[in-house]
Amino acid sequence: MFEARLNASNVLKKVLDAIKDLLNEATFDCSDSGIQLQAMDNSHVSLVSLSLRSDGFDKYRCDRNLSMGMNLANMAKIMKCANNDDTLTMKAQDNADTVTFMFESQNQEKVSDYEMKLMNLDQEHLGIPETDYACVVRMPAMEFARICRDLSQFGESVVISCTKEGVKFSASGDAGSANIKLAQTSTIDKEDESVIIEMQEPVTLTFACRYLNSFTKATPLCNQVQLSMSADVPL
């Protein structure tokens, strides 16, 4: 029996909003330590790796390891039916072919439950190698999302160049060209509002706006984003 409860469903709502544009389907691997999800987008250009630790749930029970193949578009439809402050309970029997989602309103007056068929997805588990990056930039997630959104109006790709002074984002196309330079924050009073750069050596890399704008769908989940970069290595 698998049962996981969140007192507020908004974390899982944000997780679904973060991945549903990149992935059509994915396997939720449930074990007593939590839920792991790892999947590549259809073109294998990006890898989504997600971990929901059991201690992040208000109640978590997983008697036997369970892999739930989810159609994320359908799961997103179900999650849209939950209010942010509803209690969410996800349940599945051990060798089930369905999963149920129950939402309870704060005042206990409204209880909704949704059942979704599970899919048989072939499992490929990829190892994510430890990498020593040339540059690691930590910056406000909202700021990065804003930069990607603004620059994607000017070109299909963004050039990110990082030195110890700061990080520059550039794009150019028919409409013109755009450069956004962020200096490293000198006096760090609020970590998650600062731009912090750890540089082994300068780096200049180019990425498609389409993917950056998909990744920044995860912005509501966290105040800070970390950009780890090296030549010829995935961002």
Binding site: M40, V45, L47, H125, L126, G127, S157, A208, V233, P234
Partner: peptide, 14 residues
């Protein structure tokens, strides 16, 4: 136009 390339080769299949 530089295309974003697949990254499968970066992740050894465990």
């Amino acid at each position: 136009k530089q295309r974003q390339t697949a990254i499968t080769s970066f992740f050894p299949n465990t």
